[in-house]
Structures are given as structure tokens and as C-alpha cells.
Design a binder for these strands. Structure first.
Lengths: 227, 227
DNA sequence: AATATGCTTCGACTACGGTCGAACTATGAA
DNA sequence: TTCATAGTTCGACCGTAGTCGAAGCATATT
């Protein structure tokens, strides 16, 4: 009853419906303003503001002021990771918010998870990189191998700028729909944005859905075959 | 606001202080009765009963009736995993329930996490098994290699009975204190109970602390050196 | 300056849910 | 059968926290 960190506080923060909606909205990886989040949660701006300050004090968010706007994003990958885990539990106990709607299959196919690719395609990417020896798991943490670094640069990803960033390069993130790992970290983000540049994929503006173009799917298949 | 599983419900379940206390108590891996959990949470038996039925409906617990007792344990490793994740967030935002008490260092050194070894020693074990090629990570899931199977049997672990169980053999579980992975799954449990048989370690009855005997620490060092 | 927009703070209202006492059921012991 | 112990159900109480209107700041735009 006394040892260990205080779970209840954090969980209670996530446990309010309005706040949970905001957090899931932020799982898209985009930074959103107070009013956008209010809209997303279905509450007035005042209450949204109150909720956001609480989430912020709880260390779940990262606020940035820009002019008269205030942008919020998730604090870090750990937060996203826990949220995905909770989604897994909720999905497992059959508590989907919408019972396998048409969007649902799209979400399972490919979606954005805090700026990196998740869903079926996300785990395919991850498995492929591991299988080709581009990524290696040393105990806990993923590392980019030499061949992996070459591959990334040949894929027009600038590793130096990624490395200069203080966020970890590769991380694994558990997928609630696939129940498998996909690639997170700044490299994961770089891959997704590169896919966008190549217009292999397109991110839906309002949801987390990621759609592959016909050509994009073909190229993805070619480069990241899961033989 | 509409897609994805309903996080809020699960999080709210964990978010109540009394329930959170029960869940952390169950992180020891032991099944506890209603009255024990009531004691642990600091509430009367009636309220405990109500809490437990809610947690159960939420799919977080696994109840078992035995005579006039009713035992509860965590439903599965996923639940434990999410709880550890939440502990990580809480610890990260500086919300420790007790500020680095004397127990705290013991907990970080070695503790029990849903019946397997966690903390510093837990991650050491995991890293060693990976480094020696006893465990391999194929994309998402851990697998026991051939040499690993030999090692386990030489360590008096009966793999056949473990495999006959329907729970996964090896899983990784994120450690909130170390922020690294340690070994979960039935193999993880088997290792811990084997350590107990060898009296390398002793589990505290009331807390999650695991203490290594002098000899146990030496032997552990010898077998699972982190060179 | 004057006005508009984005966000925060304050205060009051309300409701949901945690809490326990008391009564009830079920299993085991004498 | 009778008593004791473990757990559940019911009902009533109460507090906390989510909610919004209104007013107050702060940053842009004219």
C-alpha cells in the first residue's frame, strides 16, 4: 500500500473521457491547439483548458506557445506507449468505441501512432528491417546496424540530423491492433515522413488513418517484402 | 473523438486510489483474497468487493473460487505490462509515493513483477540471456534458441510442462525503474522460482522486494555475467 | 487606440461514484 | 443443527471533480 510510484494519479488523468479523447487525438503525433482539442473532446474551451493544464502538470503533455496559440503534443514516446497499451487492454476486453466500423479496418491496416507508422503496415516495416539485418535488438534497445545506416541514407534519410536530436533513434512500440512491435523513435518518424515525401502514403487530416497509394503499396512491397 | 478503443474506461478503473493499490499489490504475482485486498487498499470489505467486481468486468483480473475464499490475480501479462508502464510515467514525473525511502533502493535492485524478476537484476538476467544467444528477438517476439533450451534444461527448468501451458514462453516486459526490458512469460516465472528453490533469492511476503543471498548473488554473477 | 481572437481564471451548479452500515447468501467448522 | 467466517447486495450519505457562463489577460490585427 505504500511502495512504488503513484499509478492512480496518472491513470485518473487518462481516465476522464474528455481527457482521453484529447490524448487519443494527440496520438496522431500532431500538436493541437486548445480549441482544436476542445472540439475533439466535445467540451467548451474553458473546460478543455482546465483539463490540459492538469494533463500537463501530470507530465503527459508538452506545451508550446506560438503567438496567441498554445500547442500541445504528447510529452514523449513513453506516454504514447502506455496509451497504446491501454488501447490494447480496452480492445481485448471488447470495449471498442465503435464496433468494427468501416474506419476500423483502415485503422488496423495503417495508421499514425505519434508520428510513426502503426498497424499492419507498421509491423511489416519493422519485421522487414529486422529480417534484413538493418535493425538489431541488443537486449532491450534497438540499434541501427551498419547496413541499416547505409540503407537509411540510400533512402534519403539524414541520419546526422536525427542523431543530433536528443530523442532516441530507434524504439519499439507495441501495436494495439496487431499486438506486435513496430518502429518508433526519430527513425520511425523519418520513415513515415519520407513515405509522405515520396507520396507513397497520405495522412488523413482528421483521423489517424494512413492510406497507401497504388504505387506506394507496390514500392513498399518491393522494398520491405515480408518473404 | 470516435475511432479507436475506449481508453477512458480502463484508465478510470485503474485511476481510483483504492483500486490502484489493489492492482499494485497484485503486481507481486500472487493471487490475493478479497479481504487481503481490502486490507491492502485500506477500505472495508464491502467496497473492496465492489471495486473488484468492476475491475473484473473490465477484464483486468482473473478470479478463482476456492472454498469460501475468492482469489484474484492479474488477468494476464498485458495488464502487468501496462501497469509497469504507468509506474514509469508516474516515476518519471516525480510522483513517487514515497520519496526514495530505504525500500526504494531495494525495489530498484530486485523485485517481483507479476511473478518474474524485475529491477536491476531482472534486466541483467535478460541482457545476459540475449548476449549468450539463449534468447533471440525475431521482430516482435522473443524466442528461446536451441542453446537456450539446453541451458534451461541444464538449469533444471522443465520446458515441456511450460510449453504445455497456453501462456507464452518468453515475453519482454518494460521495467519502470530501469526503463529497460526484462524477461516475462512462463520462462521468466520459471527462472524466478528456480532461483527460490536454489535459495539464491527470497521474496518478501508483504512487499515486492526480492533479496539475494550472499551465495545467490555470487552464483548469479557467475552464471549471468554481464561482461 | 480600438477591436478581435485565443486562452485562462473564477464561481456556482450538478452529478457521478466511492464509502460504509446493515442485511443477506454461501461455504465450512463444531 | 448451530455458529462462524468470507463475500455480496442494498441503500443512504457525502465529497470530489467535471461542467459551463462570465469576466479577465494576452497577443495579434486594423
Amino acid at each position: 500500500m505504500k511502495e512504488g510510484p503513484d499509478i492512480a494519479h496518472v491513470a485518473a488523468l487518462i481516465g476522464d473521457p474528455a481527457r482521453a479523447n484529447m490524448l487519443t487525438a494527440l496520438m496522431s503525433g500532431k500538436a493541437l491547439t486548445v480549441s482544436e482539442l476542445a472540439e475533439e473532446a466535445g467540451v467548451t474551451i474553458q473546460t478543455a483548458s482546465s483539463h490540459l493544464s492538469k494533463l500537463n502538470e501530470g507530465g503527459l503533455l508538452r506545451p508550446r506557445k506560438q503567438g496567441r496559440h498554445k500547442y500541445f503534443s504528447l510529452a514523449n514516446d513513453d506516454v504514447a506507449h502506455v496509451l497504446e497499451g491501454l488501447m490494447g487492454l480496452a480492445a481485448g476486453s471488447g470495449h471498442l468505441r465503435k464496433r468494427t466500423g468501416p474506419k476500423d479496418t483502415e485503422l488496423r491496416k495503417a495508421r499514425v501512432c505519434y508520428n510513426h507508422l502503426a498497424g499492419d503496415m507498421g509491423t511489416q516495416l519493422f519485421d522487414s528491417l529486422i529480417a534484413q539485418g538493418h535493425l538489431a535488438m541488443n537486449g532491450e534497445n534497438l540499434t541501427l546496424t551498419e547496413t541499416g545506416a547505409n540503407f537509411a541514407t540510400s533512402f534519403q534519410i539524414d541520419l546526422d540530423t536525427l542523431r543530433s536530436n536528443r530523442t532516441p533513434l530507434c524504439r519499439e512500440c507495441l501495436d494495439w491492433s496487431e499486438r506486435r512491435s513496430h518502429l518508433a523513435g526519430s527513425l520511425g518518424r523519418a520513415f513515415l515522413s519520407r513515405f509522405e515525401e515520396l507520396s507513397w502514403v497520405k495522412r488523413d487530416q482528421k483521423t489517424r488513418v494512413v492510406t497507401f497509394s497504388r504505387n506506394g503499396a507496390k514500392e513498399f512491397e518491393r522494398q520491405f517484402a515480408v518473404n
